[in-house]
């Protein structure tokens, strides 16, 4: 506590600067690419960046934000995405229509979340290992159901066509991100549950002694995280018109990176939805910009890894709250 206060007094400007590093970096990178990569600022490129890359990762990362805010982590986000996608595709192919398929997919995602919640809240397993177990079991279940990983395509007559819908000039997936971000963001920042989640995430013993039910809160958090992933699963399968087994795992690493980069925005280093969205934007803008200036996917990954490391290093160096060696 004393070191934290001392830092705040002795280096107010520096720490404020470091807190703004993510937005500043994004502005700098956008400025760089709009000069270096002709076409980066074109409407076509920006809309493809947002629709093809930003939307899915953003929704998954929003769910992950809650898990991280509560002091945990959700390694099984991909499993929830995949299960929702599977239920969605199977129900559509079964001729049930969107009215059944969408709730069905949400229920499938929530099942994964409930399984996690049962392990974490019921059996007292740490979120990391509990969701790791879920991820393993989820992979096995998917392999068994899909004959080792064969995709299931949505039949032509029942194509959902959700991604083509626009409302007030904005595509539906973007509305979904907005809706999910608003709900999760407002609850986390302003709601009673949000305060409780942050209390558990900051000082679990204190939260327990204050009479909060850690069990109930983690139950809600992990079901909510999986529900967000289920929304992503629905968008994913309506984008590619198929269920591709184990495809959700691709989001895991970037979602964790985005959430923790987003914590740099907060003075106390807490996970927050605006920060997470900026983190997702950061990752996507770099990948897209590097692609446009002709770097291949391989160098993109090196650059992204390096930049994420840099942002995290800056933020944690400014905070000095992690254990000192």
């Amino acid at each position: 506590m004393t070191t934290l206060a001392a830092t705040a007094v002795s280096r107010p400007l520096l720490s404020r600067l470091l807190r703004g590093i993510l937005p500043l970096l994004i502005v700098a990178i956008v400025a760089f690419f709009s000069v270096a990569a002709p076409g980066f600022l074109s409407l076509g490129n920006l809309s493809s960046l947002v629709l093809n890359n930003f939307v899915l990762l953003a929704i998954v990362a929003i769910g992950m934000t809650w898990a991280v805010a509560a002091g945990g982590i959700d390694l099984s986000v991909g499993t929830a995405v995949d299960f929702a996608s599977l239920a969605f595709v199977v129900l559509l192919n079964g001729g049930y229509g969107l009215v059944v398929a969408i709730p069905g997919a949400l229920v499938a995602g929530a099942l994964v979340g409930s399984f996690n919640a049962g392990l974490i809240a019921g059996l007292g397993i740490t979120p990391f290992l509990a969701t790791l177990g879920t991820l393993f079991i989820g992979t096995s279940v998917q392999q068994l159901l899909s004959d080792g990983g064969q995709p299931i395509y949505i039949a032509q007559p029942v194509l959902p066509g959700l991604t083509a819908v626009t409302w007030l000039g904005m595509p539906l997936p973007l509305w979904l991100v907005l809706a999910v971000a608003t709900v999760y963001g407002v609850i986390l920042a302003r709601g009673r549950l949000g305060r409780e989640i942050l209390a558990v995430g900051t000082q679990v013993q204190l939260a327990r002694y204050s009479g909060l039910s850690i069990r109930q809160i983690s139950l809600k958090v992990f079901i909510a995280s999986a529900l967000a992933c289920a929304v992503a699963g629905i968008v994913l399968s309506s984008t590619v018109n198929a269920y591709v087994p184990m495809s959700g795992n691709a989001f895991l690493i970037n979602a964790i990176g985005a959430v923790f980069m987003g914590t740099t925005l907060s003075r106390t280093g807490r996970a927050n939805i605006p920060g997470t969205l900026l983190g997702v934007l950061f990752i996507n803008v770099i990948a897209n910009g590097l692609l446009l200036i002709g770097w291949n996917f391989y160098w993109q990954q090196v650059a992204t890894g390096g930049l994420i490391l840099l942002v995290l290093a800056f933020s944690f160096a400014s905070r000095r709250q992690s254990p000192s060696y």
Binding site: Q301, V302, T304, G305, I308, L309, L312, A313, Y325
Partner: peptide, 25 residues
């Protein structure tokens, strides 16, 4: 982890990305 004081989960996650990228290159 030791000098920059990143939590190991994050530090090694980021270096994993970096290294996997180098391998691809």
């Amino acid at each position: 982890v030791v000098v920059l004081r990143l939590p190991p989960l994050l530090a090694t996650l980021a270096s994993m990305n970096l290294i996997a990228g180098l391998e691809l290159v």
